[in-house]
Amino acid sequence: MKVHRIDHVGVIVQDLPAAKDFFIELGLEVLGEAEVEGEWVERIIGLTDVKETVVMLGMPDGEATLELVKFHTPSDENGMQPSFSNTLGIRHIAFAVQDIESIVAKLKKKGAELVGEIQNYENAYKLCYIRGPEGIILELAEKIN
């Protein structure tokens, strides 16, 4: 028995177009889009009356995949809940980037906001958290020569 790699990370969103545009602006590429429903998916995820739209996004190097999912039914009765960097559960997705300042400026024009600020970590990395649509937190990491 062996685990090969992480296949993808799934993010459930309400505003699929905004989330998709945000990740495209970051540099990901659309690999595919599909409407998903039926007993087969209901049996996998343990919900009934499932109707969802799925967008698969990939990194330009092909190494990682991100799945954005918009559930049309059933809906989340609680809606979006505010979260903080220390809220329990999966909290952020980290991306290795080049030119962190330019990326942050570009994403801020799309409505993203820095959670804290860009910091130099031991002259090895520039790091920051940035919050995008749906409250999604990204960690951006730029390796310093």
Rank of each mutant, 00 (worst) to 15 (best):
I130H: 00
E35D: 14
R43S: 14
Q14L: 11
L26V: 03
I44L: 15
L114Q: 03
G62R: 05
I6N: 11
S85A: 15
E35I: 11
V11W: 01
V13P: 03
Q81L: 15
R5V: 08
Y121I: 15
R5P: 01
I137T: 13
T87A: 09
K70W: 06
R5C: 10
F22K: 05
V55F: 01
L88F: 12
E42V: 08
L114E: 01
E35R: 14
T48W: 06
N123R: 12
I90Q: 09
R91M: 08
E63A: 15
G58F: 04
R131E: 04
F22S: 02
D7S: 12
F95V: 06
K143F: 08
V36F: 01
E139C: 00
F22H: 03
K51I: 09
E101W: 09
H72T: 14
T48V: 13
A112S: 07
L140Y: 00
E35V: 12
G132K: 02
E122F: 11
P74I: 10
V97C: 06
D61L: 06
N86M: 12
V41W: 04
V9C: 10
I90R: 09
N123H: 13
D61A: 09
A112R: 02
W40F: 14
E122S: 12
Q98R: 15
F95N: 04
V13D: 10
F71W: 02
E52D: 07
I144V: 11
P133R: 05
P74C: 09
G79M: 07
Q14F: 12
C128R: 00
T48N: 14
A64I: 06
L16I: 12
D21G: 03
S85Y: 11
N123M: 11
V104S: 00
H92E: 05
E77S: 15
E25L: 13
L127P: 01
Q98A: 15
E42T: 08
D15M: 07
L140H: 01
V9G: 00
P133L: 06
E113N: 13
E113D: 09
A18P: 01
L114K: 00
H8M: 06
V50C: 06
N78S: 14
T65D: 02
K51M: 07
G132T: 04
S83G: 08
D7Q: 12
H4Q: 13
T87I: 06
E77F: 10
C128W: 02
G32W: 06
G116W: 01
I118Q: 03
K110R: 15
H92K: 02
I103K: 09
N145L: 13
K110V: 05
S102E: 12
E63N: 14
G62K: 04
K70T: 04
L140I: 04
V9D: 03
L31K: 15
L68R: 03
I103D: 00
I44D: 04
D21F: 04
G89R: 07
L88A: 15
